[in-house]
């Protein structure tokens, strides 16, 4: 096991390095550079050259790459060209905001998905299953940025129940602690619902299939024969046995926790990593782009390792398989 883990970690490290290298050169291959954006137009060619010199953009690409990599390995991701602050600070500020949004959405979505999926699986009539499957597809097909705008129109503009966007009201700093928390919660409701809705449908479908499969097995028949109440059979016995695939899903959703909320953050002006990424992309803010790429690539690698480990834990046969390819 430790050897397998070590090999996977080495492979992942190589993979991340590969991704970073490709992205580094890709971003710089394209004509136009951030100096134009910082120097504005009125600085002229001379000012632009100065800016390039200041940020080392006039050096050969290879040297720039070596410098960046050396810094990154020591945890120094440079200075944001757009915000004139250390990249680490820009990113570190955005991560908790994104996690607050995505983790809340994940918890809500999982809880609702498990409850609805199990409820439907316990129904003998197929009509509910069909309804869940079709409704799930519909929810899964809605573009989340559009859904967000519609939610803003209905719940913020027309009904006036919830704020239109952002994370805090302008006067939040003057509120007492309890009211400040309530204010944050009110801002959280719409983004969480929009983000969670599509995944909720997917989770509910998975849970239903999984619970239904377990309900058809012999030990459930045995439990029923012993006279266990139907409610306990479904919610106690079957659900517990059916949750393993859900945990695998959880591992695969790990990278989404940081990078998956781009559209929702954009629509609701939520100051998270997705918004930082989009804005630095539009501004050619190289250092921030690189740091965000490194972060997301690491999460993807970690998520896939965790999912593999989860599968091995759930299915002992996989542990003796030499080839990692078969694990997937």
């Amino acid at each position: 096991m430790p050897r397998y883990l070590l090999r996977r970690l080495c492979q992942s490290a190589l993979m991340i390095l590969g991704v970073l290298t490709v992205v580094f050169f890709l971003v710089r291959l394209v004509p136009g550079d951030p100096a134009d954006l910082i120097a504005e137009q009125h600085l002229g060619a001379e000012g632009r050259d100065l800016v390039r010199q200041r940020y080392g953009l006039d050096r050969p690409l290879g040297e720039q790459y070596a410098r960046w990599l050396g810094g990154a390995l020591r945890g120094d991701f440079g200075t944001s060209l757009r915000q004139q602050r250390p990249v680490a600070a820009v990113v570190a500020e955005a991560i908790p905001n994104t996690l607050l949004l995505t983790v809340t959405a994940l918890v809500v979505e999982l809880a609702a998905g498990i409850v609805v999926g199990t409820l439907v699986a316990g129904q003998p009539r197929r009509r509910w299953t069909r309804l869940l499957n079709t409704a799930g597809l519909v929810l899964y097909s809605l573009p989340s940025f559009w859904l967000g705008l519609v939610a803003i129109m209905v719940f913020a503009r027309d009904l006036g129940w919830l704020p239109t966007g952002g994370m805090r009201s302008p006067d939040a700093a003057w509120l007492p602690a309890g009211a400040r928390l309530g204010d944050l919660a009110r801002h959280l409701v719409l983004p969480v619902l929009v983000l969670g809705l599509g995944n909720f449908a997917v989770t509910a479908r998975h849970v239903r299939t999984s619970v239904a499969r377990v309900l058809a097995s012999d030990w459930i028949l045995a439990a029923r024969a012993r006279g266990v109440a139907e409610r306990r059979v479904v919610w106690g016995h079957a659900l517990r046995g059916a949750l393993l695939p859900v945990f695998t899903l959880l591992g695969l959703s790990l990278p989404g926790l940081l990078g998956g909320a781009v559209a929702v953050e954009e629509v609701f002006a939520w100051p998270g990593l997705g918004r930082v990424a989009v804005q630095s992309l539009l501004a050619r803010d190289y250092p921030v782009i690189m740091a965000a790429t490194a972060l997301v690539a690491t999460m993807v690698a970690l998520g896939s390792i965790l999912a593999d480990l989860g599968c091995r834990w759930a299915d002992p046969r996989l542990r003796f398989d030499a080839g990692w390819q078969e694990v997937r």
Partner: peptide, 24 residues
């Protein structure tokens, strides 16, 4: 080829598309 597929999978999906489109 398996390695190549994994390399591409390691690129963070939406993010890669945004990146490629935004820089050109």
């Amino acid at each position: 080829l398996t390695w190549l597929v994994d390399l591409f999978l390691a690129f963070p999906g939406v993010y890669l598309v945004l990146l490629l489109v935004a820089v050109s």
